[in-house]
Design a binder for these strands. Structure first.
Lengths: 344, 344
DNA sequence: TTGAAAGCGCTAACAG
DNA sequence: CTGTTAGCGCTTTCAA
């Protein structure tokens, strides 16, 4: 039998007519509610499947007041964070039939407002706001909405719930890994001091490596990593044996600078990055050992929390810091094995 | 007057009641249709604004059969292409009140089907499919839907419309730029020959530089660029004066390899990349002159085309190749100025 | 066990 | 110029 092109999706009415039952019976049968004769139900089901019936979600939502739809508003122009996070979100939501609108605001307030209005008009069940750092305010006020809001990689206001990477944990992981590899003189080269993430990580660094340990704040760029190495080399008599970088890009600059001076990584000095941005960290020479912020997991948690909220269940409030993970590549090696390796 | 927290959004009925008119008058007034007394209209408008009335898009859509909603299905796990494209799409759509669902399939067929079903149930007005290359089939069949489909950075089936970067134009731009800079001996280092994009660009290269010009196919990685330079240096007596790379990552490896051999870029050889992936191309030493694929523009065009289709207007069919652009940084310089520069 | 009827929030005919 | 009525596609009482 040839399936005709359907210019109008078939409706419950079509099913009911074909099955020779009323609308409500068809509805009950399909949703498995109420008391429907087994045979009737089977027949309705079979026919519905046969004509490819799918209920109109719009009509359902209008009645149920749940649109099975959420909005993700992002500040991130670049996509580095947004795509992993939002695909994490929809991964956990799609099985519950909920879809996510993605709204990129590029930091433009007008655009953000436009998007927000459109989302609200479309009766989204909730909104997830995503940014690229924790210490800037969202461009729009989301505190007065009558839908739940979750913040991901962004710090929400009082009594909201935010999922963010645990920078301190990440820093700890990085430093502990260097120390376990035998590093005793660790240097920290990182981004601007104005960034909370940079300060948080630096604090952990100072706690573990001594309060006078040198933190080099700069830019989040490769160039800065390169330049920092130049400075270190001209200022210090002794090379550090480990360098903890605030980002993979900085680490790449560091690696580059070191190579320019014929200093070998990891033989002479171990280097660890932060971000696990694979386009960077997998392509360095040597491939970079680094800290992964588990962005997808942040998305998962945000999505799950949203699901609970839309069901009216309570959700933990406050800033929830999710653990980072260490990804071992080749830029860190045990000092011991370097020092004691016999020269053939 | 204190605005109470609205636990239920107010409806047209509320407005009508407050303005002491009927539902339809209120509707007409708000939509500026039919003949409504100026004073009445003003009053309705004022009251609507006062109580913050916004029409329920779900109810509207149910009636109008247009949901002002589209779906973007993407194959891209990484986000390199998807975010620029999809933000391009929603940039042109948001002003028309349409929002976009983003569905990341990670190439998983089941996931793709799930997402597609959810989109269709939600009555999207259309679907944009995005991938990362032009020569692979979408994981799902989109040809039998009863909503319009547009392909972006993906080649659709017969009689569909696709927007893709014009690889040949990009290659032409790159080579012309090198030639204008005086390069006479240009080498092409690119990705796997199995990729259509690589073959297309190589063809342009051969056309412009002579059919025997050497194309080095390899991987889309930095490592390959590096390795290729090693091979070139050990095989050839004379260095090329220009290198056209198939991607920024390859170019970065090339730059790196060249530096290892103390060959200066651009003084000794000019290098040009492809992609303008800024995390790579802005951070190389020297910053990379490269070809931008204008992803956002692809998104714009796809969004616009979708808008037309949803209005029932016709749209050009076939694969529409959008021009690339040259972004000049510092890895290409005129041979003339290099050769003839006076030594002080 | 089934069906008729009301209604989610809105728009569009058609009378008045 | 304004109001009444019907209905988008579905769920849900409440009678039969």
């Amino acid at each position: 039998m040839i399936k005709p092109i359907q210019h109008r999706r078939c409706t419950l009415r079509d099913v009911a007519k074909a099955a020779e039952v009323s609308l409500s019976t068809a509805s009950n049968a399909l949703n498995g509610v109420g008391r429907v004769n087994v045979e009737t139900r089977e027949r309705v089901l079979r026919i519905a499947r046969g004509i490819g019936f799918r209920p109109n979600a719009l009509a359902r939502s209008l009645l149920s007041r749940r649109s099975l739809t959420i909005g993700i508003i992002t500040d991130d122009t670049y996509g580095r964070l947004t795509l992993p996070i939002s695909s994490g979100v929809s991964e956990v939501l799609v099985d519950h039939g909920v879809s996510a609108f993605l709204c990129a605001t590029s930091g433009d307030r007008r655009l953000a407002e436009l998007h927000l209005q459109a989302l609200l008009d479309k009766q989204v069940d909730g909104i997830i706001f995503t940014a690229t750092r924790l210490d800037v305010e969202p461009p729009i006020d989301l505190t007065v909405l009558n839908v739940p809001v979750i913040y991901a990689f962004a710090a929400g206001p009082f009594l909201s719930t935010s999922f963010v990477p645990d920078d301190a944990h990440g820093a700890m992981l990085a430093i502990a890994h260097l120390q376990e590899a035998g590093c005793r003189d660790i240097l920290h080269i990182t981004g601007p001091e104005s960034w909370l993430a940079a300060r948080n990580r630096a604090e952990v660094y100072r706690n573990r490596c001594g309060p006078s340990s040198p933190v080099m704040f700069g830019a989040w760029s490769e160039e800065w990593g390169h330049e920092a190495i130049g400075r270190v080399l001209s200022a210090r008599k002794k090379l550090p044996d480990g360098i903890f970088c605030g980002s993979d890009e900085i680490a790449r600059g560091v690696l580059d600078g070191l190579r320019d001076h014929s200093i070998s990584v990891p033989a002479d000095v171990s280097v660890i990055g932060f971000d696990n941005w694979e386009v960077v960290s997998r392509q360095t020479r040597p491939p970079l050992t680094t800290i992964d912020m588990e962005l997808k997991e942040i998305g998962h948690r945000a999505g799950l929390a949203m699901l609970q909220l839309t069901r009216g269940e309570p959700v933990e409030k406050g800033v929830i810091r999710l653990p980072c993970s260490l990804v071992r590549r080749e830029s860190v090696v045990s000092r011991a094995s370097v020092d004691t390796s016999p020269v053939p």
